[in-house]
Amino acid sequence: MTADPSSPPGPGTTRLWGGRFGGGPSPAMAALSRSTHFDWRLAPFDLAGSRAHARVLRRAGLLTDDELTAMIGALTELSAEVADGTFAPVEADEDVHEALERGLTEKLGALGGKLRAGRSRNDQVATDLRLYLRHHVRALVGELSSLEFALLGLAERYQDVAAPGMTHLQHAQPVLLAHQLLAHAHAFTRDVDRLLDWDRRTAVSPYGSGALAGSSLPLDPDAVAAELGFDRATDNSIDGVSDRDYAAEFCFAAALVGVHLSRLGEEVVLWTSTEFGWARLDDAWATGSSIMPLK
């Protein structure tokens, strides 16, 4: 193994730190630090951030046009290989960022090592998670919209049907069944409203914050933010790189969706019971018991 720091590292030697260390971490420490088994889902977003960062490095004069072209080409290739599974993390990769830098240097050699200038895994992961959530929250809202339409369709199909309204499972006052179904639809519209509001707050890019103080290189956080679909870059690098409010907020909003689904599920369980006999499930959406043939 050559000691020349400018030569491209081979597989398994891509650790993003180590210059000031005499030896590598112990196996137990390496196992503790490894996160590719859960952060690999961030890979497409990390690569998107890398392309935006490469363009900013070019505009700062830190890459030539040719270098940028080669880098964007390699990053785009890597995106395709991540998507089809031909590029994946190996045991020695500490995290998604390190695995992808290994992939890049395998393609580009020493040029791959230029991309890391002016960024840290700290601002990378803070950005990646925002991108991952903002992208997938669209799919989530799409699914919630479909569920809203399903509830509205059911309410419309049985719009004039009266049902016993119940409290404590006792007959209380008659209601339209549609009224009760729409109660659930209202809950899901609030869930969506919460996610839309969350998205507005999450549309701030931490990229360019570095580990905490920003970078002395002439980078352009707003250009990165714009390319990645954020409204703007953070005003405070320390806050930008350390803020995980959006993750906690998302967990709450998602948990509440779960609670609302549970409430709806409980109604279906009751309504389809022999005692109630109000509704029948389509066979395509029911599963059976492994011991009781009647279920």
């Binding site: 569920l147 059911l154 709806l264």
Partner: peptide
């Protein structure tokens, strides 16, 4: 859940 709700058959006569 959406599939289950969209295909749910209610029994209006029982409910009424």
């Amino acid at each position: 859940v959406t599939g289950m709700i969209a295909t749910l058959t209610l029994r209006p006569e029982v409910l009424e």
